[in-house]
């Protein structure tokens, strides 16, 4: 006895495969002609006519017996399908409504977002303005202060001018005084000269009178 295991199916499978392939090729080549096609068509049409007759008779019998036929059931089933199609169409319309609502909501949200943005911006602007106003007020106060100081300065300037004028006048006076002093000195000199002359004259008179 051999240790090899015998597989009786292997060869059988191969043979069957070959046989099947050959038989199918044979049958197809035998049927690959116009006569076979025409004969098949005759068979097909005969079978069809037989079925048509059968169906017609069934309908007649069913109508006599007042029984619904497959065609009646078909018509009812079609109504259900139509209802289903209408529901589908409605569903699609609901979708478009949902979509348009969603689009409007989105637009609204965007609009609100813009509004919030603008409000925030306005608030910021307002705060900025308040700050600027405060600064402006401060500047105004400073300006007023400056103006006051400026007017003080003007007064000071006027006073200074007055002082200068007075100084000028004082200078004039000084000059006059100086002139007067000079005149006085001159006068004094003249007086001294006169006195001296008088003295000399007196001295000279005495001498003469003697």
């Amino acid at each position: 006895m051999s240790k090899e295991k015998y597989d009786p199916y292997k060869g059988f499978r191969q043979l069957t495969g070959l046989w099947e392939k050959q038989m199918n090729s044979l049958l197809l080549s035998m049927s690959d002609n116009n006569e076979y096609i025409k004969l098949s068509n005759v068979g097909l049409q005969t079978h069809t006519r037989y079925l048509e007759m059968l169906k017609r008779n069934q309908e007649i019998m069913a109508s006599f017996m007042n029984m619904p036929t497959k065609n009646d059931v078909k018509n009812v089933a079609k109504l259900t399908i139509q209802a289903e199609e209408k529901i589908d169409a409605l569903e699609e319309q609901i979708w478009s409504l949902q979509d348009s609502f969603a689009a409007i909501n989105k637009e609204n949200m965007e609009f609100f977002g813009e509004l919030v943005g603008i409000t925030k911006q306005m608030k910021e602007e307002l705060e900025k303005n308040v700050k600027e106003l405060r600064e402006a007020k401060k500047v105004k106060t400073d300006l007023q202060k400056l103006r006051k100081e400026l007017s003080d300065l003007s007064e000071l300037k006027a006073e200074l001018q007055e002082l200068r004028q007075e100084l000028t006048e004082a200078n004039h006076l000084k000059t006059e005084l100086h002139e007067l002093k000079q005149e006085l000195d001159l006068y004094k000199m003249v007086e001294n000269d006169e006195a001296k002359e008088k003295k000399e004259l007196e001295l000279a008179g005495a001498t003469i009178s003697k």
Partner: peptide, 24 residues
């Protein structure tokens, strides 16, 4: 499919329309 079958179908030698109508 065999050549003549397709030819038969194309030139109208065989038609399934009536059969299909009967069966629905």
């Amino acid at each position: 499919s065999p050549e003549k079958w397709l030819e038969g179908l194309q030139n109208g030698d065989i038609s399934v329309d009536r059969l299909v109508d009967v069966y629905g």
